[in-house]
């Protein structure tokens, strides 16, 4: 409606108010109808599929037993406080580990893409580290560090099982995350490095200011994948007798001969994961909208 760019124009009539033509109004009505129809089809199908699944599960012969064993309301209520207290430990463990993993993973990735001959030992170390740590099952790592390190009885080394289980998670996940970062760094087109170097930036500067910021954005979805996985794997600390949500649930389940606490824990993990996924989706959309505004 307003023509912002016709300063000094000699009577350009572009500024005249525009009213949609009849054809355009007709077209908008058609688009609205199309949107309504697809919304209707989508919601109808979702409802149908959910209904069919529900009927299939509840009509199975063993359903009453399963219902009592896994979905008992009283047991859920009884286990809830313990599980919640335990889950708080999972959340803390996850939050601390996540930050350390991001830093360590990025450092290892950078070490692997380093070119300087002086950094050759670091590079070799980084390769050995990722190969080795990704190869060892996380559970074994948790068991070895969680029981082994405190048993060494070294002066000044923490003896808490939680601490060492956390270290095991960090070591294992940093190796995965390093590889994700490295894939992201490799996916940035070489012309970006060239143009950064053409501006006089050193190679580390080019990585720091040009390559890594682009790489990080690209790898957000796989990183999220790893972090959802990490959230769940904080449950592995229960293997070294740390009183987390899973340990609390196992305790309660064994005491009452009822598995409902496990379902409660599962719900806790889901509730933690979904908002994180939505948050990253939103972040990604915002980045894309900013970088691809107006062009293809």
């Amino acid at each position: 409606m307003t023509d912002t760019s016709s300063a000094g124009a000699s009577g350009a009539s572009t500024g005249a108010a525009w009213t949609p033509s009849l054809r355009e109004l007709e077209r908008r009505a058609v688009r609205r109808r199309q949107r309504r129809r697809s919304l209707l089809v989508a919601s109808g199908l979702v409802a149908l599929v959910l209904l069919a699944l529900g009927v299939a599960v509840t009509s199975s012969p063993g359903w009453p037993n399963v219902k009592e064993l896994f979905f008992s309301w009283e047991h859920a209520r009884e286990a809830f406080p313990d599980v919640l207290a335990g889950f708080w430990l999972n959340v803390k463990l996850f939050l601390v580990c996540e930050v350390v993993i991001l830093v360590l993973g990025l450092l290892v990735a950078l070490a692997r893409v380093a070119r300087s001959p002086w950094l050759a030992p670091v590079r070799v170390l980084a390769v050995v580290y990722t190969d080795l740590l990704r190869g060892i099952p996380t559970l074994l790592l948790v068991l070895m560090l969680g029981f082994g390190m405190p048993a060494l009885g070294l002066q000044g080394v923490p003896i808490s099982g939680t601490f060492w289980a956390g270290v095991a998670l960090v070591l294992s996940y940093s190796a995965y995350v390093a590889e994700v970062f490295r894939a992201g760094i490799d996916s940035v087109h070489p012309s970006q490095v060239a143009s950064a170097q053409a501006l006089g930036l050193s190679r580390p500067q080019a990585l720091r200011f040009v390559v890594v910021p682009q790489a990080v954005r690209r790898v957000v979805p796989p990183l999220l994948n790893d972090f959802v996985s990490l959230q769940k794997d904080t449950a592995l600390v229960s293997a070294v007798a740390v009183f987390d949500a899973v340990f609390a649930a196992r305790d309660s389940a064994a005491y009452n001969f009822n598995y409902t606490p496990y379902v409660v824990v599962a719900c806790f993990f889901v509730v933690l994961t979904v908002p994180l996924a939505r948050l990253t989706d939103w972040l990604q959309r915002r980045w894309l909208a900013r970088e691809r505004a107006g062009q293809l």
Binding site: W18, S21, R23, E24, R27, V30, R31
Partner: peptide
Amino acid sequence: VDDGTITLDGHEISDPL
């Protein structure tokens, strides 16, 4: 498009259908 028509070979292609 936000208004107007595009016709290819006598058929309006700016039709949402």
